[in-house]
Write a protein that binds this DNA or RNA. Sequence first.
DNA 1: CCTGTAGTTGCCGTAGCGGTTAATTAGCTA
DNA 2: TAGCTAATTAACCGCTACGGCAACTACAGG
Lengths: 119, 119
Amino acid sequence: MAFLIESDRLGETFAALANSTRRAILARLAQGEANVNDLAEPFDLTLPAISKHIKVLEHAGLVVRGQRAQYRPCTLDPSPLEEISTWAEQYRPVWEARFDRMNDYITQLSSAPENGRKR
Amino acid sequence: MAFLIESDRLGETFAALANSTRRAILARLAQGEANVNDLAEPFDLTLPAISKHIKVLEHAGLVVRGQRAQYRPCTLDPSPLEEISTWAEQYRPVWEARFDRMNDYITQLSSAPENGRKR
DNA sequence: CCTGTAGTTGCCGTAGCGGTTAATTAGCTA
DNA sequence: TAGCTAATTAACCGCTACGGCAACTACAGG
């Protein structure tokens, strides 16, 4: 009965990346696979907290989990990062145009007869 | 007494982008400046709700506000988008390596003697 | 079977988000 | 001045995020 439940993958990715601990975990995983304890080590957080962060990343598709004995190794899946990069790149024309408009603005300012008076 | 309050600009940007309404507002602003009522029009939300979304975007540095009579026009500031694009691009080597590994995997598959059996 | 190690699940408290309605501020215009 | 339009603020509600602790599951090895 999954009716009209927009999944918003992009939003989920952004939400996952909004947390600095999670971004740090991703950075660590970019070096290669790691267990939960390894990932937890740099942080002043309990293991359950890290476990939950990992679950968020997993749900966002950023982390894939394995199973070897009692270890559940994490690996980075970068495809959502590719997606958000692509999304952001949509706006590249805007931030490149910014300089042009800035120039326009400055030109306007210096050629305008007067500005900023209070009435 | 603002002691040890890490500002986490990147996190704030990601958090702002995590909401689809806010991303839609940005998309609209990419076409050019707009007032709050204009921005609210496409959504099934009250004006205060939109006003709050705008404040989030403003606080994240994604929107700059003006003042003309009773209007407070919004314009897009794309620099945080440039930042997150740069951040994501850090991982490009990872997602490009993925294809190589995929190829390895496919090569393995096609040279393997049989696969996909259920145990 | 018991013990140790790795990790997850459940529950709780605090805080913030996303939405509403109602009231308020700010500026134009008659 | 009064009244209209634009937008924000205030107060409130339900829900979720993030952290902790305690209990639990899962597997390996003696």
